[in-house]
Design a protein around this nucleic acid. Structure first.
Lengths: 231, 231
DNA sequence: GGATGTGAACGCCTTCACAGCT
DNA sequence: AGCTGTGAAGGCGTTCACATCC
């Protein structure tokens, strides 16, 4: 059972969350956890958590719970974290800089091995210990480092072109922050994070939840930026 | 039944994507689109798209397609975009700065009315036309502006405290970028964007897809999911 | 006694196929 | 003829309840 009967994608996403919680628990010196406690910390249903973990084969002790460090290692192994993943990041604007400087990746086995930008003004800057390189060097770096993951943080207009370039050079997984739907060859995984979509879903759910407590919207009145215009 | 029998959350997220595509189409002067074309641009199944739109009541013309600007307005209305949403942003580090400067929000009816950070070094800086304010002014600004959405881009350690403060001041929707699971009172919507989780899901799917080829040549002979692909 | 692991029921969402309008 | 709108079928994931084991 624990070979590869395929783990549901929704479960994989939650496993990553459990891993984060377990890491924190382990750092606190905690020895064991129950499904109830772990589920509460991860914000999910206890039965669902056990179901998720069942995809990894038995990994708890009945009547006791889960051993924190063992479970952590087990999940880390399933998620493929024992080997580091080399990533390249294209588009070093505000968001790209944030991603490049975000410490949360390194802790989880992801390492940026190349930062790229089309703007000469940004090329040559250093972020952390990496220089920003021109787009012309992308193929070369990909060939050298065998990076398998590409992160796109460019303006929407060039995202598809960057995607094409990445996939042509052998990148098999892409995380896209540009607000466009990318088309990639079969066999290439694409994941989209669209910040505006998140906000719109949030706003809709709020609207649906209740007819709003009091009259608002009047407070805004004047200031509504016409169209920001960051490319 | 176009009243409000509740629209599935998955549909809402896709509506936001359709809206983005339609806006682009309208700017190109396009008059009408078929479900097939729109679905292709949004990366979804045509039948699914029509099903999504059916939640809004009839909004196309049989034999012809959808009128671009009409459909855009219809979706915008359902998503609650006719009234602007005031947001506050807490945590003006790299990511927070990126969010504050991101033009994609203003275009979609979201406006930041306050930026906050606990670090004195950041307070007083300006991003766009807003100053970074100290945390002490959060309650005051929330009371004045009646902002309903809070965005958290702080370190994980303080995210829950910020969440408590936001909800106590009446914020009903929270978008959280900190890698922690927030607990909020019932009636408050929380959406989580965890960049590390996204990367881990991506890496897992890649690992599951194939044992990784040696170089960039794709293994033609080996198992590729048959997946009858007529669309 | 207590908590895990899991089969089964339930509900949601996607997909298909076709009826219906233009 | 073309494309939308939708009932029905199918697949997937979540939830529940309980058998199982420490």
């Amino acid at each position: 059972m624990q070979s590869r009967p395929r783990i549901p994608e929704a479960t994989v996403a939650r496993l990553a969350v459990y891993l984060r919680v377990l890491t924190g628990l382990a750092d606190s010196g905690r020895g064991t956890v129950s499904s109830g406690e772990l589920a509460s910390a991860a914000g999910v249903n206890p039965a669902g958590l056990r179901k998720d973990l069942s995809h990894l084969g038995p990994c708890g002790t009945r009547g006791v719970g889960y051993e924190v460090s063992t479970l952590r290692d087990r999940i880390a192994g399933v998620l493929g974290m024992e080997t580091a993943h080399a990533c390249v990041l294209v588009g070093i604007g505000n968001l790209g800089s944030a991603l490049a400087g975000y410490g949360g990746f390194g802790n989880r086995g992801f390492e940026f091995v190349g930062l790229f930008d089309a703007s000469p003004a940004r090329v040559g800057q250093r972020i952390g210990d990496l220089p920003v390189r021109p787009m012309e060097e992308l193929d070369e770096v990909l060939a050298e480092t065998r990076a398998t993951i590409g992160v796109i943080a460019t303006p929407a207009e060039v995202a598809q072109r960057v995607c094409d370039q990445l996939t042509a050079a052998g990148v098999r997984s892409i995380l896209n922050f540009a607000p466009v739907t990318l088309s990639a060859p079969a066999g290439v995984g694409v994941r989209q994070v669209d910040l505006s979509v998140e906000l719109q879903v949030l706003a809709f759910l709020d609207k649906q939840r209740g007819p709003a407590p009091a009259a608002l919207g009047t407070a805004l009145g004047t200031a509504l930026a016409p169209a920001g215009g960051m490319a």
